[in-house]
């Protein structure tokens, strides 16, 4: 991991996003080297809940342990070892939690959008469940981003909150998550909820480039990006390392949370189906007896 980031420090902003993609999309693309003779078309091979539970169950301890270890290491490094900033002092340490949370807020929404496409176009049943489970986790990370940003803004800028384009667009992202959480659970027929939620999530995707480029397109109080794909990060390397660790760790934690929740959702759906089948059998038996 370390060698990779030091070799291409500029490429590291995309790393959590790409990893997120892989993990959220675990339902469909995780096991690309799956048995070749599996029936059906490539995507629906992973719609089998039993296979998903096996794969996700095997993956879960790695995601959880990796996420916990990397996050803990990064946070301790950032809090204790990393140097203070020449002008911000120790307040710069809030960056090590604020920036990863911000990346995950956007990357999680991207994962939600991917699930929504899978749900709308391919009617993938696991994508529906995953979309419903990504929402609350993404909202939590967006909330962390907003709260820690506020805690950073007060001592540095002199204000808890300002209505500049970056802060406002992230607040809109938060509301998009909340709207999705509410909408996807708002219907008696879950399928309609999944469709409506997917459409809302996809419309909300226009907000992602706005968040990313708001600091370049408009005058904002928020500073522009420190880490870009094109240039060297304008950050001291001793500060970049803990940030890389917490970013990777947070990504794994996000993936672990979504995986665990989706596993539970798959089992809960199976429980509902079994209960309904049992009730129908009982109904039938009563009718036969009468």
């Amino acid at each position: 991991m370390t060698a990779e980031t030091s070799a291409a420090p500029g490429g590291f902003e995309m790393a959590p996003r790409a990893a997120m993609f892989r993990s959220v999309d675990a339902l469909s693309s995780l096991a690309t080297p799956a048995p070749p003779k599996a029936p059906g078309r490539s995507l629906h091979r992973f719609a089998n809940p039993g296979r998903f539970l096996r794969l996700a169950g095997a993956l879960q301890p790695w995601l959880t342990a990796g996420g916990l270890i990397l996050t803990a290491a990064g946070l301790v490094w950032g809090l204790v070892v990393a140097p203070a900033d020449w002008q911000q002092g120790d307040a710069v340490r809030i960056m090590y939690v604020h920036v990863p949370a911000a990346w995950l807020a956007s990357a999680g929404y991207l994962g939600l959008a991917v699930c929504s496409v899978l749900s709308l176009v391919w009617r993938h049943p696991l994508a529906d469940l995953a979309a419903a489970e990504i929402g609350p986790v993404g909202a939590a990370f967006t909330g962390i981003c907003l709260a820690t940003g506020s805690l950073w803004g007060k001592p540095m800028w002199g204000a808890w909150w300002v209505w500049d384009a970056r802060l406002t667009s992230v607040l809109v992202l938060f509301f998009l998550y909340l709207g999705h959480i509410a909408l996807i659970r708002a219907f008696d027929d879950p399928t309609r909820g999944y469709r409506a939620g997917a459409i809302l999530a996809l419309v909300g995707v226009v907000n992602l480039p706005i968040i990313k480029f708001s600091v370049d397109w408009w005058n904002t109080l928020h500073q522009p990006a420190t880490i870009s794909l094109t240039g060297a990060p304008s950050m001291y390397l001793g500060m970049l390392w803990p940030l890389a660790l917490t970013a990777l760790g947070y990504t794994l934690v996000f993936a672990a949370l979504v995986t665990a929740r989706t596993r539970a959702a798959v089992m809960e759906r199976r429980i509902r189906a079994l209960l309904m089948a049992a009730a129908a059998r009982e109904d039938g038996a009563v009718q036969v007896a009468a």
Partner: peptide, 18 residues
């Protein structure tokens, strides 16, 4: 450490919520 209350609150949130 400067700004300790802000830093402590931010880290607490970032750990406790997940």
């Amino acid at each position: 450490m400067t700004h300790l209350p802000y830093i402590a609150a931010a880290y607490a949130l970032a750990v406790l919520v997940p």
